[in-house]
Design a protein around this nucleic acid. Structure first.
Lengths: 116, 116
DNA sequence: ATTACATATACGAATTTAATGATATAAACC
DNA sequence: GGTTTATATCATTAAATTCGTATATGTAAT
């Protein structure tokens, strides 16, 4: 889907598709656009973690973290694996990692490089 | 800011900074995570557009679009230029474009390449 | 089978966000 | 000055999100 020119697009089937894609993307972004959930994903980018580890990291209540994780699961940003009583979370796919990397480059890299 | 290991980070100044960055990023993502606003930004990625053009494209009410644009202005994702009665909007900086490009790659490119 | 531990879910209250209709500002034109 | 055009803001309401408390589920250990 190339970014089409305004003139070409109005009322076209491409517009419909573009709107559909925007809806999908905004759904994913809604899941991302929350301070704690974004932090959770950043930590998971490092590798899989248990819920307890994530709770300790965020310093938030168990039910709060669990609900945030549930949201990330529903929007398919993370997947889980059970080992005994413990459930390990990790990023669901490379798409999530791509978006996170872009966010990371914009918001975090400048710090490291002493720019900004 | 490298993604630090969990062990290294707890209670550290880096954690504080990481949280601050997450807050900044999630603020920007909140502005992005709205179907119409995302579409507006995609259109603006093509080049500057007047409010009227944007309204026509989205097919939404004038006040609705204007408020969405106001939100994007407040979060510094777009800038404006006045020419007579007309106000032209465009993307505010390369950071916005980077994030948009990543979203575009994930959600729109697969269509073009006949994948997915 | 009871208990403890790790995690998930249900429900309600408080807050935030979005859309609408109405009104305001600012420039251009007569 | 009065009107039209382009855009912005305000106020209200409706809807969605978030977080807290409480409770439930699943696994393991005793």
């Amino acid at each position: 889907m190339p970014l089409p020119k305004l003139k070409e697009i109005e009322g076209s089937a491409e517009l419909e598709q573009m709107i559909e894609k925007a809806r999908e993307a905004s759904d994913m972004l809604k899941a991302l656009s929350h301070e704690s959930r974004l932090l959770l994903l950043c930590i998971l980018a490092e590798g899989e973690k248990s819920v307890t580890e994530l709770e300790q990291f965020l310093g938030e209540r168990q039910s709060t973290v669990s609900q945030q994780l549930a949201r990330l699961r529903l929007d398919r940003l993370v997947t889980t694996r059970r080992d005994g009583k413990t459930i390990y979370y990790s990023l669901a796919n490379e798409d999530v990692r791509k978006i996170l990397t872009a966010i990371y480059d914009v918001f975090c890299e400048p710090v490291r490089r002493r720019r900004r």
